[in-house]
Write a protein that binds this DNA or RNA. Structure first.
Lengths: 309, 309
DNA sequence: CCAATTCATCAGTTCAGCTTAAGGGTACCG
DNA sequence: CGGTACCCTTAAGCTGAACTGATGAATTGG
């Protein structure tokens, strides 16, 4: 009988490429992974790994096993979901990774609602960059990862992970009251606050400025959008920020709607097979109602129709 | 993550009914089973077993897990089969349980053929009563069980096990030369050799005699059909025997064809998911050719058309 | 009512699988 | 080309999960 634990290691290897990465992801020493895979090879009697430079490559047979392992793991995930669904009360522990604005705004409301509706469900929230959190779904560090997708910056497709849309979060231009600007083009030489390079909000914001015909003068870089807001409030920079920020901090100046009414899409990533899990569907609906509640509460310019709400 | 090993124990329990039986089947102590299932209950946080007198009953949740476990185990079986199928040569070890006539006649030819065509395949044959061997398929004591089905004695359907027909083996009346009998009715007061009561050949043979209008005078009981044949040869008893016996021992007297040309059906039982395994398909074809070869070789009365060959 | 079954529990033991440490091969870079 | 960094493997030793065996409690059948 094939050992599922070893098969999982093989599957991780096929995703991550090196034994060291698998070990890192699953908190083992590389040696343990090497031994276990050697054992799997021995049990099956089939070569599964072959050296490729200083790395290893999966053989054709190993790929076959990986494919089956995916379906087996999905089946087990569904078993857990079915089991949880058969109970009246939703219980257990849900480990959530949330990006900053979600953690500050969406999540607290959702947690409150769930504490009332599903007292048996425990939540563990951690604020973390979603780009690095999504791969850890399959490593089972988290059950849910909240993510965002900026226009023109599509989320990479990760096998074994399914995405579930939460809604749109409109993106607007936040300008200090002291700035004399009516639209984007007026800010060609203004100081800007943006996210660090390499992030998708940064790529999007830069694209917006370049489309408007200028290269932004970026004076402040931070992943902290509340920091951006305070820079706007104190008159130091303009910034392109999503509406949800204003649920966490007061609107610091003027908000200008951008051409085309762009928005980031908020989504929830879970392991395939787990999306039926009652804890996850409960969390999903709690987030969606949290989002729509926040949207109607916020005193925002109603210059756009939002098809998501 | 649900532990597959523990799930397997739960599955066995749902089939066998008591912890003791599971322990017996899988060569553990009952204590080990109890501990493992308690652990599974603890991990899932869901009650899985409830006391029912001095036994235990599976809860609704446990049944859910069992259903999923069945599909997961089937998937793993298919993984192994796919893996083996991807290799050029058929290798590995095939553990076969065979009933007596099969072990004496069908199997040796098949083994010879396989040794030539698939030198990498090792076989371990054990002669054993198929009725007790089939349940052990799921316990993985055997990979293949050869079985027989007498007319009107249908094989019980075992979940997780699939049956594959090998062919018909005609049943005839073997009468000592010294007996003055032309058909069944002439043997109403003759001494008979039959299989022990409780077996399906016995039930069938008794039905045949009763249909012919008499209760047989059973003087010899044995599962050994070669013994039956020798009783016929030595003039001590008549017996209802399948043709395959004559591949193991000379025809001892006269063979009379029965009305309706009855035959037992020979089949091969394997775990579901394993029927695609190349070692098993190879064994299957070897057995079928072995059977047809034997049939054409035997000097038998050709009074019947055999639709199986 | 006693004997036999069956499951639960506890203490003791064994072995699979982990970590650490050392070694060898490969790529990349000055 | 040597140096360095990275990656995989192997050996040795240790730890904890899981097994055995003994004991006890509950239930059923003769």
């Amino acid at each position: 009988m094939l050992d599922l634990h070893r098969l999982r290691l093989l599957r991780e290897l096929s995703h991550r490429g090196t034994l060291a990465a698998v070990a890192e992801a699953l908190s083992y020493s590389p040696s343990a992974i090497s031994q276990q895979l050697a054992q799997l090879e021995h049990e099956t009697g089939v070569p599964l790994l072959e050296k490729a430079g200083r790395r290893v490559r999966l053989t054709e047979q190993a790929e076959i096993l990986v494919r089956h392992t995916e379906t087996v793991l999905g089946q087990l995930e569904r078993a857990e979901a079915d089991l949880a669904a058969s109970l009246r009360e939703v219980t257990g522990l849900l480990r959530v990774a949330a990006f900053q604005t979600a953690a500050l705004t969406l999540v607290p409301n959702a947690v409150t609602a769930l504490a009332r509706s599903h007292p048996g469900l425990r939540l563990r929230i951690r604020q973390i960059d979603p780009e690095q959190a999504i791969p850890t779904l399959t490593a089972r560090d988290y059950d849910v990862v909240l993510g965002e997708e900026y226009p023109g910056q599509p989320q990479p497709r990760v096998p074994g992970v399914s995405l579930h849309r939460l809604g749109r979060d409109p993106l607007r231009l936040a300008v200090p009251d002291s700035f004399d600007a009516a639209d984007l083009a007026d800010l060609a030489s203004a100081p800007w606050a943006m996210e660090p390079s390499g992030t998708s909000p940064r790529r999007w914001a830069q694209t917006v400025c370049r489309t408007a015909g200028f290269e932004p003068d970026i004076r402040f870089e931070s992943t902290d959008m509340v920091f951006h807001a305070s820079l706007v409030a104190t008159g130091h920079a303009a910034s392109l920020l999503p509406d949800l920020v204003w649920a966490a901090t007061p609107i610091p100046g003027r908000l200008l709607t951008l051409p085309g009414s762009p928005a980031r899409t908020l989504f929830m990533a879970v392991r395939e097979g787990a999306h039926d899990h009652p804890a996850i569907t409960a969390f999903h609906t709690a987030l969606r109602t949290s989002l729509t509640t926040l949207k109607t509460t916020l005193p925002l310019p109603t210059t756009e129709a939002d098809p998501a709400s």
